[in-house]
Simulated assay, not measured.
Amino acid sequence: MTATGPDGPAASGRHETPQERADRLWAETLQEVRVAQTGAQILLGFLISVAFTPLFADLPDFDKNLYVATVVLGAFATGALVAPVAFHRFLAGHGMKPELIRVAGRLIATGLVTLALTISGALLLLLRTATGDPAVAWILSGAVLAWFTATWLVLPQIVLRRTAARRR
């Protein structure tokens, strides 16, 4: 990061040192991860409890396997979203905040993808059970996953490209 480079004050409109920028980006990263982390942890908690309900034993094998896959995805999502905190704890004080921010960004992206898959899997399981119509369940769950893909991945890329094109 340099003062005049693509990540410097000229690009951001801010006048901050590289350390101030790293501190700000880390604080923003923590705010972002708190929201997703909480949702993932609550969802995982509810998912774990499903196996202990009386109706679980009566689920068809497909639904039990879907449940297991969904719980595992939820555990991966939670792990990826909590990992930046562990990284910070181990790397704090070593002057590695820019590296920490890059790694945390990748972990958060991984956590969000696995969270979207977890939500879609849980929704599929719920809708298969609630509607009794597997086709409807697949269509609605697929639509929700497409919505997550569009709003969480595609839309930010479109905004980024349009902004970059305007700056040229």
Rank of each mutant, 00 (worst) to 15 (best):
P6I: 15
A57W: 03
L59Q: 00
P9W: 13
E16N: 08
P54N: 05
E16H: 11
R21C: 08
D61I: 10
L117Q: 00
A22Q: 07
L59P: 01
M1D: 12
Q31D: 13
T129H: 09
L107R: 03
V103A: 15
F56A: 00
F62N: 04
G79M: 10
V113Q: 00
A122L: 02
A116Y: 01
L117W: 02
A116E: 04
V68W: 06
E20L: 05
L55V: 12
L91N: 09
L145S: 05
I139C: 06
W152Q: 14
A135E: 14
W26P: 07
L123V: 01
A135L: 15
R167A: 14
L66C: 02
T70E: 07
R162K: 15
P84Y: 01
R21I: 11
V68C: 01
D133R: 04
A57S: 08
R14G: 07
S12R: 12
T17G: 02
L59D: 00
P6D: 13
V33E: 07
T151E: 13
V103H: 13
F62G: 01
R14H: 14
A57D: 05
V35P: 05
F90P: 02
L124P: 00
A109L: 14
L140F: 10
A135P: 08
I48R: 03
I139H: 05
R168V: 15
R102D: 10
G132T: 00
A36Q: 09
G132V: 00
V50A: 05
Q19V: 13
W152D: 14
P60I: 08
T163Y: 14
A150Y: 13
R21Y: 10
L160F: 09
A92Q: 11
L127V: 04
G74S: 02
V85H: 13
T38Y: 02
A83T: 06
A75E: 09
A83E: 07
